[in-house]
Structure formats: C-alpha cells, structure tokens
Design a binder for these strands. Structure first.
Lengths: 337, 337
DNA sequence: GTGAAAGCGCTAACAC
DNA sequence: GTGTTAGCGCTTTCAC
C-alpha cells in the first residue's frame, strides 16, 4: 500500500507538507506542490479515508434507514438523498429494516460503530427504544416521511391528514357520495391513522355517512393488499361508487381485481390513489392520485442533515412539503352533477 | 467518546486484555472477562470500527454500483445482496451511476478511498477505463447482470441470448408469424445486442421473416420508450400480431399506448416482456414475461464476493442462472393453430 | 493470563 | 514554508 510517507520520500519532503497539499491547507510553495503532485501521480497514491477519519472524526458517510426495499416509494426518496449526497462528497450506507425493530436496532448500532456523520430515518414507526438509542449515540438525524410525537426530532414529510382530506374532498367534488377506503394499519401513526382521520373528517364535513365498515385495513400498503381487500370492501359496501386508497400500490391491486371481476373503472367504480409513484401511470386506467414530492422530500431531508452536520442552526426543524392532486383517468364525474 | 482505555481503567486491567475479550481472542480468565464486560456496559462502550479498520485493513463494508435507481430491476437485485450482507455483518454503500462513466469512476475512487472490502458492479456496460482501474486498485469484485468480454472478471447473470430466443420461440409456438421487437440500445453488449440476436435467430430457425425495420430501439428500456416506440413499430409493421419487449417496463409502456389507441391486448396484439418485475402483474392484462431470478442473482453475487474476500477459491467464476417463462395473459394463441 | 509498547496512515500543533 | 512529533483508538507482537 502506498502511503503519504512514500509520497514524501519520493517528493523529498515531509509527510506534513504532503498532507498540506492534499488538503490544500496553507504552508507550501508552488514548487513543492508540483513535486508532491508529481510523486502522487507516479505512485498512484490514494488517500486512506479510514486513517483520515480516525483523526478528524468525520467519515463523510451517512446512513439511510428504510423499511422496505420492495416499496417503490423508497427509490424516489433515495434518489433525492443520493443526488445531494454525491455532490457533497458523502457516501450512503443503506439499511433495510423490513419493519423489524430488532433489525433497526442492529443497524443503528452498526451505523454508530462505523461512525457515520448522520442518519436519515425513513417512513417507519420509531419505537421509543430506537429513539432513545438515537438520542444517546448523539448522531445528527432527520426523520423522513415520519415523525415522533414524543421526542422533538427534525423531520420532513407531507401532511397526511390534509392530503387525505383533499383526496376525499376531490371525490366528493366529483359527485360521489358513497366512498370507501383502502387503508393501511390504523395503528401506524404516520400513514395509517392520519389518513383515516382525513377520510372521515372530509366525509363528515360534507354531511356524508361515515362507517367503520367502509374502511378495509391492509398489512403493508401493498399490491396484494389492494387485490384482496377490494373484494372485502365490495361485499361490505355494495353501493360504493368511489374508493380512496392510501397507497398507489394498493390502488393498483384494486384495479387488477376490478379487471378480473369485470368491474369497469372509472365507469362503475372510481378510485384515487396516494403517492404518485411511477406505477400510477402504468396501470389502466391511469390512476388519479395524490402526489407526494418524494424526490424533494429526500433532497430536503439530506439538506437538513448536512446543515446539522455542519453545525449550522436548523431554521426550520419541522418541514411539511406540499402535496398535489394529479388528475388522470380513474375518477368519473357522477351523472347527478 | 468512551474508548477501550476508559474500559480498561474501569475494569482495572490493560487495553490489550480488553481488546482480547472484545474480539474473543485467547488470553483472559473468566473473571477478567466479567469485569471487562461489566465496565463496557456501565460506560456504554461501543467499538470504533474506524480505528479497528485502520489496523486490520478490513471495513466490513462493500460497495454496490447500480446504474439507475429508477429502474425497478435494481431493487430485487439489491434485496438479494442486502440479505446476505446483513447476515454476514457487512454494510452496503450504494452508488448510483445514472449510466454516467465519469460518475462511475468517481464512485470507484471513493470506494477505494473508503477501503471497502469488495465491490458488486451491476448491469452496466463497463468501459475499459473502469475495468483497468478496478484491476489496479485490486479490490475483489463481481459483476452482476453484466460481464466483460475482454477481461476475465467473475460474474453472475442469465443468458440473455437464450432467454430472448426462448421468448420469441414461445410466441412462435403460439402461432405468431409476424413478430416485432421493442429493443434497448443494440450497442449495449449485455441487454441490447444479445437479445436482438436471440430474437433474430429464433425467427430464422423457424423460417420466419426477419427484418431490421421490425426492431425499434429505445434509450433505456423504460416505460416512456415503450410508450412512444409502440407507435413507430405499428407504423413500420402493420401486419404484426406479437411483440417481444426487451424489458417489462417497455412492455408496460406499449400496453399503455395500446389502451389509448384502443388496441386490444392480447386479442389484436400479443406481447411478451422480459424481467418479471412486480409491474408485470400490475398492468392489464397481466404480462407474460421472461423471469430473471433477480433476488437469487443478487444473493449469488454477494456469495461470490464474500468467497473472494475470505480468500477462498472461486469454484465457478462464470455463473449463469436459469430464466423461466411466466405465462400470464398478454399472449393469445392464434386461431390458425 | 496479562501488560507494555509499537504502529496502522493520517492530521495538527509546534518549533524553526 | 517546512519538518518533527504526538496521537486518533485500536490490534498485535513480545516479554513476563
């Protein structure tokens, strides 16, 4: 392995000077700079970041914790994080938890041991144990598409309640009165509960009937969930003319089942999704949905993390990014209008 | 920061002994072990992997280079890699190249500087410059879903030629005689050229007409490509009854366009895809496609990498994994049969 | 079974 | 402008 010492030898100078030119710190002449750079080139010298990290206490690496590689949300989020990180010369260690709290703790521990400079924690319900550990290890963190009620950790997300409310109100605006919901886990404080509340409140606001039976709960917002749960929903709520699905993947599943059952979308049944992932364009009919600005969310989270790492004051610790309704072809205007 | 020295002090022993119990290396009594572990607990001691890496020359980290976060292939591949890595106590640094060779070189350099123990290089055409650098830095590597003609680097992939041949032969077996192709870049030595060759050879073998005009080339195997290129293909080849699409995403795009144009699939036009990503179930009609065992491919690549890292002999340096035809509903049996 | 000490490759404080 | 040196937190001889 070629070290700074070899370079110094070849350039007939000291390791301190070599270090200076590498890091472009004051204290060398143009002439020695040339000699050093020449020597580095000839020897194919490359910095040992490990050695550097040991002394600087900086690794230029961040950890990104995501629940599930299979979820398509993850990618757009990661994309935003990665783009800023790369331009800031940071590397990313990805950690998939599969929503397993043990595994999450393991990863948190690894990230600490590897001395990452910061952590982005994505769309997952944090346990108190997780958060207490995070507080203890004292690594800058930002929560992405999630937040903690109990502890004040910086986060970026969209307002799930408002977005869901808007989705349902959109359906109502198109003349629908019998609106069912395909939901995630109601105990999920992020993507579960608030979206259900948004649904119920929009209904109430417009004096429409809201019934627990009209909400069918899935396991993980997945295609499979949508597939099977449409059937249940149809049985419980035969008069239904429209569905609010708490994820695009579930909506895609519902659409697949509708095709099988020869239910015409949107003529017989309207559906609005949530997320605006690529899939929403791929299904037929193309899905009307609530857009989360996933790329921007990832990018913003990374920005907030780097601000903390650079020890700048975080102006805004709680950032809500705007959602948007993307109109495609899965919602029909009711004749009565 | 609490170090091994603090632990030694508290346990009234030497740092050497603490190190021994941490690494479970011979040379300590049960009694000191207890004392040391007690001290570590009380102090919340956690290993500094950076310091350890500096001396052991091992980081327990691998780099995974992937072209595009947006491609859904990536995830299944990563999933396999991640699962084995996590159980082997390795972390993963992900690098997205966006098929940019400069960016690839930058990442390779970073990976070297961060002293990763190995690299998995995924589905991308490697430039000679890339490979020469890889050879020079002397880090174990395995190519995933790609390979190098010129240099002998271990790889795992499926046989693109055979798989494409089989796909087209499947169409022929269903009675189709006018088969078009939605292709990727023909200069792409991995997913471009061999798949085109498989298509042509299958046609020839069955004495069917093969015409360059019947192959429409896209940019990056994407949904958008499929969307726009179906139109072109239809113009050039109006008698066409079936399409072989070199990716599921392109197939999904073609299906979307077909819906717009009121072309019935599979009644008026059959289509077979390539990859068997989740999307192939989500489109309507569900897509008949060639399955690549993506998870297994990732897992196997990781296995091969760890074997190299552990300095075991790689028995098989060139592994081809089997493809499979997944029959769904996008291919019609021709009446003539 | 245990401790002292060298040193991994680097940065930074200090002296000149 | 430049070199010497201490030391980051750890593992690993080597001596006892």
């Amino acid at each position: 392995m070629v070290t700074i010492r070899d370079v110094a030898l070849k350039a007939k100078t000291s390791i301190a000077t070599v270090s200076r030119v590498i890091n472009n710190k004051p204290g060398f002449s143009e002439e020695t700079k040339q000699k050093v750079q020449q020597a580095m080139k000839e020897l194919d010298y490359e910095t040992n970041e490990i050695a550097r990290s040991l002394i600087t206490n900086k690794t230029n690496t961040i950890g990104v914790i995501v629940p599930n590689i299979a979820s398509m949300l993850t990618h757009d989020l990661l994309n935003g994080i990665e783009n800023l990180s790369q331009s800031r010369k940071y590397s990313i260690i990805v950690c998939y938890t599969y929503s397993n709290h043990e595994r999450t703790m393991e990863y948190l521990k690894t990230l600490k041991e590897k001395r990452v400079d910061g952590i982005i924690f994505t769309s997952e319900n944090l346990t108190d144990k997780n958060i207490e550990y995070i507080k203890k290890i004292n690594i800058p963190i930002v929560l992405l598409s999630t937040f903690s009620e109990k502890y004040k950790l910086p986060f970026v997300k969209v307002d799930d309640y408002q977005a869901s409310y808007a989705a349902v109100e959109y359906l109502i605006g198109k003349g629908h009165k019998n609106i069912g919901m395909l939901s995630g886990d109601p105990n999920d404080k992020i993507a579960g509960e608030p979206r259900i509340k948004g649904y119920k409140d929009a209904l109430k606001k417009h004096h429409l009937f809201s019934n627990e039976e009209h909400i069918v709960v899935g396991n993980n917002f997945s295609f499979e969930d949508g597939r099977t749960n449409l059937v249940t929903l149809l049985e419980k709520f035969p008069e239904m003319t429209a569905i609010f699905s708490a994820s695009d993947e579930m909506a895609a599943g519902a659409i697949a089942t509708a095709h099988e059952k020869k239910i015409n979308i949107p003529e017989e049944l309207s559906i609005i999704g949530y997320d605006n992932i690529l899939v929403s364009q791929m299904v037929y009919p193309p899905l009307t949905t609530i857009e989360q600005p996933l790329y921007d969310m990832g990018y913003t989270a990374a920005e907030m993390l780097f601000q903390q790492i650079d020890e700048k004051e975080l102006i805004n610790k709680e950032v809500y990014l705007p959602f948007k309704i993307i109109e495609r072809e899965s919602v029909k205007v009711m004749d009565s209008l």
